[in-house]
Design a protein around this nucleic acid. Structure first.
Length: 569
RNA sequence: CGGAGCGUGGCGCAGUCUGGUAGCGCACUUGACUGGGGGUCAAGAGGUCGCCGGUUCAAAUCCGGCCGCUCCGACCA
């Protein structure tokens, strides 16, 4: 390996972090001169950062190949028609970067490649004899995100490792899926980032089931529900839980005056009853239809569960005027008398007995409102949002909630793309069949950001050895000839061993060099100074360690190798 | 797209309320001293104060519009 010199590095360290950077990883990536922003969610990666990204890619590549996947490459620029074929031109719509070619044809910059890989499949695969298949690529994706965020955490242009599998049936698919799942654990572990796999919603990718690989961190943008007892883990948007015991009543339907009481909390206080004794109404526009959702007063509606339960594409809360238009009374709404076709009920109100609900008149509620007797819903489905402290549905322990960053996501797609795009193969009986597909993504720069977030201290980055831009950071102190020749021979020997070496050859004070070394975070620092050299010693310090050690200069290279090897356990 | 904030040399900021000279720290250049945890002194270079328009004798500062960036929400590797 060539030796990098601090004096010639393209990029410089900053003493102060740019004000725009919030999280530790973002600040450190900027301060250490690794990344520079060009626009919202668009970054340049300077040489050391690029070295790290290449190392991450190599780790991913090795694990993908080990999982039986073949590397390939698909185009980033694609005709929009491809997206119309799968039906995603609209659902993915706003995130697609559109452009016109010179013949006025609309092209898109690909945000992901399910369409193109499915198109490839139908052009390349005809027979079950060609299956199973697993392919992957590492490529720049483009997504016109509504809100870029957190430095590299959410950007508009990024490298994704995306893999796709095709199988003859579910059983065969499961083999590919499991291999990918294991590969993902291996990848994140090798990059020095702890992850948990959580059940997730497949979102705009579609399909039946999916798991996210989450790095738990307070700077994350996802809410993750965890059970420390049984290990249950899910994204809050799909987490299951057991609601608290209902506190329903038995009795005749009767009105009760509740002047000025429009919230569940207010209602419970006013009547001196627990929130579990009330029913809450929430109004949504679901695929253009006003929808009346009923859930127990102590719970919140999970919009994503609502969408899935109604097999819909999108939902949003109704605006106040839309509520009025629908004939519902905000704050006092009652499902009684509402067309059941427009009502969706959570099991928590179905099995509860009599609850206090609105009476559809301002200032009035009703007691003993009972599902089945007083009202019904066309759809009964779990639409509750799991909250910390709720009971785990697997083991009855209390659930916790943590923030996290989604580093990878693996999906079972089923026939989501193959069917609309008519990708098929002939089976052994000569029957035309649809392959079972899976897709598997990792955000490469996001993974680098997570690695920094997971491995830093007050002074700077502490790179995991596996993805460090430089293995060894040499700090020469004092400009004597002795120092110069010692540095030259040690750096040459280390480079000869295949190590990435950065030598701080600048005429700076010791403090500046040490601080920059700490900031840039190479796993091993070697200090070669006139003072030590007089005793025939140089100094080694592992970045994560508190203490340094001195070794005779003749042992320097061996000791450096040993120190680095100690990190690989 | 809703809410909040910010745009002044490469980075961090002051100046804006109350219009008149663009300023500080760091970084950068040159020289000297110094030399093991961001050193000292001296001399420099670098900014149409985000953009456009308006008010005014005069605008970084007041008014209007636009653009950009960040954060909180709705969305995702």
């Amino acid at each position: 390996m060539p030796v990098a010199r601090m004096s010639g590095l393209f990029g410089r360290t900053l003493r102060e972090a740019p004000a725009d950077a919030d999280s530790a990883n973002h600040q450190l990536l900027l301060r250490s001169g690794l990344i520079v922003q060009l626009a919202a969610g668009v970054y340049s990666f300077l040489p050391p950062a690029w070295t790290t990204l290449l190392k991450i890619e190599q780790i991913i590549r090795e694990e993908m190949v080990a999982a039986g996947s073949q590397e390939m490459r698909m185009p980033a620029i694609q005709p929009r028609e491809l997206w119309e074929e799968s039906g995603r031109a609209d659902s993915y719509g706003p995130v697609l970067f559109n452009l016109k070619d010179r013949r006025d044809r609309t092209m898109v910059l690909a945000p992901t490649h399910e369409e193109s890989v499915t198109d490839l499949f139908r052009k390349v695969v005809q027979s079950y004899r060609d299956l199973p298949q697993s392919v992957f690529q590492m490529q720049t994706k483009f997504r016109d995100e509504p809100r870029p965020r957190g430095g590299l955490v959410r950007v508009r242009e990024f490298i994704m490792k995306d893999a796709y599998t095709f199988d003859v049936d579910d059983d065969a698919f499961q083999l590919n899926y499991n291999a990918m799942r294991q590969a993902y654990y291996n990848i994140f572990e090798r990059c020095g980032v702890p992850v948990v796999a959580v059940q997730a919603d497949s979102g705009a990718i579609g399909g039946k089931q999916s798991e996210e690989f989450i790095f738990l961190t307070e700077i994350g943008e996802d809410n993750i529900i965890l059970c420390s007892c049984c290990g249950y883990a899910a994204n809050q948007e799909r987490a299951e839980f057991t609601p608290r015991e209902a506190a329903g009543t038995v009795g005749e339907l009767e009105d009760v005056e509740t002047p000025g009481v429009t919230t569940i909390e207010g209602l419970a206080n006013f009547l001196g009853i627990p929130a579990q004794s009330t029913a809450k109404a929430a109004f949504f526009l679901v695929d253009g239809e006003p929808t009346f959702a009923v859930i127990r007063g102590d719970l919140e509606v999970n919009e994503l569960k609502l969408i899935n339960a109604l097999d819909a594409l999108e939902a949003r809360p109704l605006l106040p005027e839309e509520v009025e238009e629908a004939g519902w009374v905000a704050g006092y709404a009652s499902p009684i008398g509402v067309d059941p076709a427009r009502v969706i009920a959570d099991p928590s109100v179905v099995d509860a007995g009599g609850l206090v609900a609105g009476a559809n008149r301002v200032g009035m509620h009703a007691r003993n409102v009972t599902y089945g007797r007083d009202w019904t819903a066309a759809t009964v489905a779990d639409i509750g949002m799991a909250q910390p402290g709720d009971t785990c549905s697997e083991c009855d322990d209390a659930l916790e909630m943590r923030r996290g960053i989604e580093l990878g996501h693996i999906f079972k797609l089923g026939a989501r793309y193959a069917e609309p795009m008519e990708a098929t193969f002939l089976d052994a009986d000569g029957e035309r069949r649809t392959p079972i597909m899976g897709c598997y993504g990792i955000g490469v720069e996001r993974l680098m950001a997570a690695a920094v977030q997971a491995n830093h201290d007050d002074l700077g980055i502490i790179w995991p050895r596996s993805i460090a831009p430089y293995d060894v950071h040499i700090v020469p102190l004092g400009g004597s000839d002795d120092v110069g020749s010692a540095v030259a021979s040690i750096e040459a020997e280390l480079a000869q061993l295949g190590l990435n070496v950065l030598t701080d050859d600048r005429d700076e004070r010791a403090g500046v060099k040490f601080n920059d070394a700490d900031l840039m975070g190479a796993p091993l620092r070697i200090t070669i100074g006139a003072r030590g050299l007089r005793q025939g010693q140089i100094e080694l310090k592992l970045r994560h360690a508190a203490e340094s050690s001195s070794v005779p200069i003749d042992d320097a290279v061996t000791a450096a190798q040993e120190a680095l090897a100690s990190l690989d356990g």
